[in-house]
Write a protein that binds this DNA or RNA. Structure first.
Length: 864
RNA sequence: GCCCUCGUGGUGGAAUGGUAGACACUAGAGACUUAAAAUCUCUUGUCCGUAAGGACGUGCCGGUUCGAGUCCGGCCGGGGGCACCA
């Protein structure tokens, strides 16, 4: 079965074993529910035109080691891979060249697949999937329908970047310095109709359930910060113009209410118009236009220097003391958080302070820290001053008292606010999943709501939008799930429609339809209305879903990738569950991982997945920097291509080197010299196993009768233990060190049993699987493939020593060391130490103060 | 600004509060060879010393401890994330 090469010809050996594994379906995950399962998953890649980056094989090697190790430990392992294949680059390429993005995507996938296969990863290729495959996105669309039905999807006007010159919507990354990346044209903020997912409805659970997952603490904290829960009070400020009702604000500092000297509204706040006096109208209008052109990010960036704002001319009344408060408009207040309005307390808030100084507004200190130098703004704790009946009360107590007081008057209540915003879920692009939604008139929607075939698919309150041009309100009707997938039509041009809609808006035959409420069938509206009373007129949604959609649930599809009845069989979902280990970059710490958690919880609530969290254990591999210690990038010219190393040293060397570089989670620079080291290590193993003629090395005793030294046997068992422990803890660098230590001992041993060498090859196999297979086979391993052999067991009895090294310290400094029988007590150790020539001189004429003895380790003699 | 991380030889890195520098790279010396490559052996933190040996040493300053790379406080530096979130 093996090759016949005499030297370590990795270019021959590696393809040979890759073919062997493929023809034997070695990595097929069988749905065998009698065995314990282990599901190990990589974050699937976006197949870019640039091909594999060296960072990809880093994480993939780690999971491959785990997968191979778990198989040897008797687990039924699911280790799949697929393609996150929708994405902007393919669309941009299509716009430029006019070729269908699917063609470009397919070519990129083929290249990625070739590169990944050359690395010898033990993926179950029979479960490969791509998010662009209609058999896949059929279920992405199905999940969207479930969100829609549960009222978790709605339509709203949201600001997006619009480039009038290109007549298209741009993503944040396509806007550079306020200009379009392509062409450098000016861009502006423009409100467009968007689909939004109500992730905020899950904010509390997304936060609370973080405690149940085994994730890096830093990632948990980032998600916590992103969700941004804060407790505070909602307070109503009466307006002087009583007709306008009250102005509601959110504050985390109700204790500072007496220090409020003005109010601020976000420029987009609905009350701005009504509050603006005629003298201020022009200034306010100009300010609002200016603010509308900025993204939230710009607002924050620009605000580093000075604050901007305009007085509305109106006043509000402070509910605690009746003070008259001017109402301002300023873009440092965001419409998207809280109520879009704040009470400003300049003495105890930095932003309010800066603003008050800028516009010469009064500043009243109401918290006293009791310390001598109290520089304003002052945001720490203290006791209340200048606060009427609340003076002298501790701030924490004051928060409760003041809120309760307001609540009693009907002017406030305690509330919880989240930074988390609802998720903007649509793109005005071609290359994405079409929304399975048809826009119909109110009367047709009523028909659908009354029809038994469609009534159950509708949300409890309809999703609508008002087309201001025609003054028509449109109602969102879901397509029948049975008609999915809703595939992308062919288009003439991949350029956007020009009016803010995607290229799909130009495909009239696809867009305008007759829809049958009973069957879900449709025909183009260009044809006459078919007979029967169930046909209604509709226009398809032209937005497509963002790239996140497909990656939100792919880990579930791997469990049952070919199922065309449901997204995955419930029995298989129950067996395989969710990934036991998920490995990928920390750059996805918030968005991907939060979105996927949200969808998973929705599916959990639907009762279609059995657990409430998708990723039990998460690990982030570190970034590999270029040789120069900088981030790898084309422009720096420090990019390493895995193909190059595969050809020059072989993939076993590359895999081993990537793991030997340092801790998996660390950021570490690429160092080409290190590759030679691990390559030599593999060559040494080759030489110790095979002679120059390619026969079994004569030092290896085939009948296992060699008398190996106790020391060597002990090292072997230590190596089994350490390699196993290190793999379990993803400490691959130290596992490899241990194997190097063993190989050095192997080389020095005069005779060694075949059994021992085979055991060592098993330890090596997850890391360097090709050479391990080759040598296993050439040495006459007990099974055809090393994959079939059970992971070696270490014998704890073999790890026990009879002697232990004792370190002698004088006042904490090492002075001597000697061996003692295991279990020796302090007296025995002290007796030997006292007589030791390296110790005695230090003890002469000194008073013994104290002796610390750590059995088997250290004897510290403290003297004066 | 806030949060998170990391600072150990010439280099990548190792070290449950208990021998700092495992393992590897680089460099040097030697063995083998006609020679070279490969391989093997030895040396390789700094300083003093011919040596034996000693002193110093994990970014800096302090603390806890019999004992600190590890724990605590402060500072300096690198990297990452978030950011007018009321």
């Amino acid at each position: 079965m093996a090759t016949h090469c005499k030297d370590y010809e990795f270019l021959q050996i590696e393809p040979h074993w890759q073919t062997f594994w493929e023809t034997h379906h070695s990595f097929r995950a069988v749905d065998d529910t009698s065995k314990p399962k282990y599901y190990v998953l990589d974050m699937f890649p976006y197949p870019s035109g640039a091909g594999l980056h060296i960072g990809h094989p880093e994480g993939y090697t780690a999971t491959d080691i785990i997968a191979r190790y778990k198989r040897a430990k008797g687990f039924n392992v699911l280790h799949p891979i697929g393609w996150d294949a929708f994405g902007l680059p393919a669309e941009q390429h299509a716009v430029k060249t006019g070729t269908h993005p699917a063609a470009n995507t397919a070519a990129n996938i083929a290249n990625f697949k070739r590169q990944i296969k050359a690395l010898g990863f033990s993926y179950d290729w029979e479960r490969e999937l791509a998010t662009t495959d209609e058999k896949y996105f059929r279920w992405t669309q199905w999940i969207f329908l479930q969100l829609f039905k549960r009222g978790l999807a709605y339509v709203d006007e949201r600001p997006v970047w619009w480039c009038p010159e290109l007549r298209t919507v741009l993503a944040n990354e396509e806007v550079v310095d306020g200009k379009s990346e392509v062409g450098g044209f000016p861009v502006e903020r423009r409100n467009l109709r968007q689909w939004v997912l109500r992730i905020t409805a899950y904010a509390e659970r997304l936060l609370a359930d973080l405690k149940d997952v085994d994730w890096p603490d830093s990632t948990k904290r980032m998600q916590e910060a992103w969700i941004g829960r804060s407790e505070g009070a909602e307070v109503s400020f009466a307006l002087e113009n009583e007709k306008l009702g009250a102005l509601k604000v959110f504050t985390t500092r109700p204790d500072t209410l007496f220090g409020c000297t003005y109010m601020v509204l976000a420029p987009e706040h609905p009350l701005v118009d009504a509050l603006t006096t005629s003298e201020q109208r022009d200034a306010i209008a100009a300010y609002r236009r200016q603010a509308a052109a900025k993204s939230d990010l710009d607002r924050t960036d620009l605000a580093k220097g000075e604050k901007t704002g305009v007085f509305t001319g109106s006043f509000a009344i402070n509910p605690v003391n009746g003070a008259r408060l001017p109402v301002w408009v300023a873009d440092y207040v965001l419409m998207g958080y809280g109520t879009g309005a704040i009470m400003a307390v300049p003495a105890h808030d930095e932003r309010d302070y800066d603003f008050a100084v800028q516009f010469k507004l009064p500043i009243i200190q109401v918290i006293d820290s009791g310390k001598p130098d109290q520089k304003l703004p002052f945001i720490d704790d203290g006791k209340l001053i200048n606060s009427g009946p609340f003076n002298g009360i501790d701030w924490n107590e004051a928060k409760k008292r003041l809120t309760a007081d307001l609540a009693a008057k009907g002017r406030g209540k305690t509330t919880v606010n989240y930074k988390l915003r609802d998720w903007l879920f649509s793109r005005q692009r071609y290359w994405g999943e079409p929304f399975p939604i048809i826009w119909v008139t109110e009367s047709d929607y009523a028909k659908a709501a009354a029809h038994p075939a469609s009534a159950a698919d509708l949300p409890s309150s309809p999703v609508t939008y008002k087309d201001s041009a025609t003054d028509t309100t449109w109602f969102a009707l879901p397509v029948a799930a049975s008609t999915l997938p809703l595939v992308l039509p062919e288009v003439q041009s991949y350029l956007p429609s020009g009016n803010g809609e995607s290229p799909l808006a130009n495909v009239t035959e696809w867009l305008e339809i007759w829809l049958n409420l009973a069957t879900g069938a449709f025909v183009p509206a260009s044809q006459p209305r078919p007979d029967g009373c169930n046909w209604i007129r509709g226009r398809r949604e032209t937005n497509t879903m963002p790239q996140w959609a497909g990656s939100c649930w792919y880990y579930l599809r791997f469990i049952d990738p070919k199922n065309d009845k449901t997204f995955a069989d419930p029995k298989l979902l129950a067996y395989w569950g969710v990934p036991d280990l998920y490995v990928g970059g920390a750059e996805h710490a918030v968005l991907h991982l939060l979105y996927a958690r949200f969808w998973h919880k929705v599916l959990f609530d639907l009762g279609v997945v059995p657990q409430s969290e998708p990723f039990t254990k998460l690990f982030h591999q570190g970034i590999i920097l270029g040789e120069d210690g900088e981030k790898m990038s084309k422009s720096r010219g420090n990019v390493v291509n895995p193909d190059t190393i595969n050809t020059s040293h072989g993939t076993d060397t590359l895999r081993l080197y990537l793991m030997f570089l340092g801790p998996l989670e660390a950021m570490k620079p690429w160092n080409p010299n290190g590759i030679e080291g691990v390559h030599r290590f593999l060559q040494k193993i080759w030489r110790e196993c095979l002679s120059r003629e390619g026969e079994v090395n004569s030092k290896i005793t085939l009948d296992d009768s060699a008398a190996e030294s106790a020391e060597f046997v002990k090292l072997f068992h230590e190596t089994i233990k350490k390699v196993g422990d290190d793999i379990e803890n993803l400490r691959f660098n130290t596992a490899i060190s241990q194997m190097m230590i063993f190989s050095n001992a192997l080389q020095k041993a005069e005779r060694v049993n075949r059994r021992t060498v085979l055991g060592f090859l098993q330890l090596l196999a997850p890391f360097a699987p090709h050479i391990a297979e080759e040598l296993w086979s050439r040495l006459g391993g007990t099974t055809v493939s090393v994959l079939q052999a059970a992971w070696p067991q270490f014998d704890p009895a073999k790890l026990v020593s009879t002697e232990q090294k004792i370190i002698v310290q004088i006042n904490g400094k090492k002075r001597a060391e000697f061996l003692l029988p295991v279990g020796s007590n302090q007296d025995a150790a002290f007796a030997v130490a006292q007589a030791h020539s390296d110790v005695t001189p230090y003890l002469v004429g000194k008073n013994l103060k104290r002796v610390i003895f750590v059995p088997g380790k250290i004897l510290n003699i403290v003297i004066e």
